[in-house]
Amino acid sequence: MTFALETQQLTIRFGGHVAVDAVSCAFAPGTLTAIVGPNGAGKTTYFNLISGQLKATTGRVFLHGEDISGCSAPQRSRRGIGRAFQLTNLFPNLTVLENIRLAVQSRAGVGLNLWSVWSHHRELIGRAEEVLETVALTAKRDLAAAALPHGDQRKLEVAILMALEPDVFMFDEPTAGMSVDEVPVILDLIRALKARRDKTILLVEHKMDVVRELADRIIVLHNGALVADGEPAEVIASPIVQEAYLGIEVAK
């Protein structure tokens, strides 16, 4: 079987500090893998290495069996690795609709089109409106992204990723800082995405109940290294997770 995504001995050092330490892991197509670990374990850095925001010191990344280690971030994005950011990362002075349109436009490959007028691209605008609908932001389409409350900004962040329609979705704590009644919107989206079984999803999430319910598999990072990997129930019960992640001292 060809894996959707695979990392081999992926490592990055910042000076003497090894932020991600020889992580080898393969992700089967159509699965949802949760990545857990304490703060500073290297989860976001691992994402950055996969999406190309950071260059690995050593190690390789494969997408559908193809080595993409030498590809830049925009190339990886166009090949089908999409990501939503942990810290909200939007175009603050553009409207909600424009934010999503930019992702739709990238997906459609019409970026270098200089001679048409944006408002004439009805099909792209229609697609952006569809995505907007799924995160219940239609009423706010003409507001500047910066004017949205935090929860809506998180939704927009996820919506941009949805509009990009990648093969591999990487969500970095998509529900962080959201109020309790807003969380289900995002989780429903991820659930629906998972149900399609044609997209590969990587999810960094701290809420254990969410992880238990959604994940097909959990991997645990600790001090940059992969320390556990397996079925959700089994991994959550393992001593290393109880100790490293949940902070529970386990008698040896």
Binding site: S72, A73, P74, S77, R101, G111, L114
Partner: peptide, 30 residues
């Protein structure tokens, strides 16, 4: 025309948040 073309939209995206434009797959240098 340039400003109101899809190309112009990407320029605004670069002005607003260049790293994010990169992560959407735009070769911003071009």
């Amino acid at each position: 025309r340039t400003i109101h073309s899809p190309f112009g939209q990407v320029l605004k995206a670069i002005r607003e948040n260049e790293p994010r434009a990169i992560s959407l797959g735009y070769k911003v240098d071009r």
